[in-house]
Amino acid sequence: MASTTKVMTALVVLKHPEWLDRQITVKQEYRDYVTETGASTADLQTGDKLTVKQLLHAMLIPSGADAAMALADNFGSGNTTEARIADFENQMNTEAQQLGMTGTHFDSFDGISHGDNRSTARDLAKLGQRAMLQPVFADVVKNKQFKAEAPAANGHTRYYTWDNTNELLSTYDGALGIRTGSGAEAGHSLVFAAERDNRTLVGAIIEADKDRFDDATKMLD
């Protein structure tokens, strides 16, 4: 499912809405992870302080794995980064079980698998449906572009601009989001939603070629 994994990452974070304005400091570790894995990035700068809500934008719009790691590291429990991330992934799997996602297992907070990060189109559509019921999530994923500013390590203000990887927002009338994914093993995936005539549809495509946006358009029509 590649980066569509981040939909569940967001759902777990949003179980704690009281933390949306909490500031998280970007660690060099998050930048190093992106470099080492070749993951997509929001280009977060070490020492910057972003709120949880800003990190949700950074994760869900440009698909920032650095932002996903920051959230997993701060919403998991444990004495080390590895322990906190493992705990967070356990929370993701617990949530999947509660949603009845019987064909899903997470071993990753961002979709870069360690051998057992898997799902089905049906499960991802169910996940997308649940996520879109969260007003904060729905508000984030509809943005074609988002600008944020955050206190930088040097005392100045850092300005970020993130562009959405979801082409449907620009090409499909009524598109609402949700999240793209791509990887060497996973192919191209897409969890999508659109509304017309007061009717909202959520769908998912996995292991597709690059025509996933055309396929989603046909499915929605």
Rank of each mutant, 00 (worst) to 15 (best):
E149F: 06
A150M: 08
A152Y: 02
A153Q: 15
A153F: 15
N154C: 14
G155L: 13
G155W: 12
G155Y: 15
H156T: 14
T157D: 02
R158Y: 09
R158P: 09
Y159G: 01
Y159A: 14
Y160M: 08
Y160R: 06
W162D: 05
W162Q: 06
W162C: 08
D163V: 02
D163I: 04
D163K: 14
N164M: 01
N164I: 02
N164C: 00
N164F: 03
N164W: 00
N164V: 04
T165L: 11
T165C: 04
N166L: 05
E167W: 03
E167A: 13
L168V: 00
L168C: 01
L168W: 02
L169I: 03
L169V: 00
L169S: 00
S170H: 09
S170P: 00
Y172T: 01
Y172R: 06
G174S: 09
L176Y: 06
L176F: 03
L176Q: 14
G177Y: 08
G177A: 10
G177Q: 04
I178F: 02
I178G: 00
R179L: 13
R179A: 13
R179K: 15
R179F: 01
T180G: 09
T180F: 05
G181L: 04
G181Q: 09
S182C: 09
S182K: 06
G183H: 10
G183K: 13
A184K: 10
A184W: 02
E185Q: 14
A186E: 13
A186N: 11
A186L: 06
A186G: 14
G187D: 10
H188Q: 13
H188E: 12
S189E: 10
L190E: 10
V191Q: 08
F192Q: 01
F192V: 05
A193L: 06
A193R: 07
A194N: 01
E195S: 14
R196G: 06
R196V: 14
D197F: 05
N198K: 15
N198A: 08
R199D: 09
R199G: 01
R199L: 11
T200E: 10
T200P: 07
V202W: 06
V202N: 03
G203V: 11
G203I: 09
G203K: 01
G203H: 01
G203P: 05
G203A: 06
A204E: 08
A208P: 00
A208G: 12
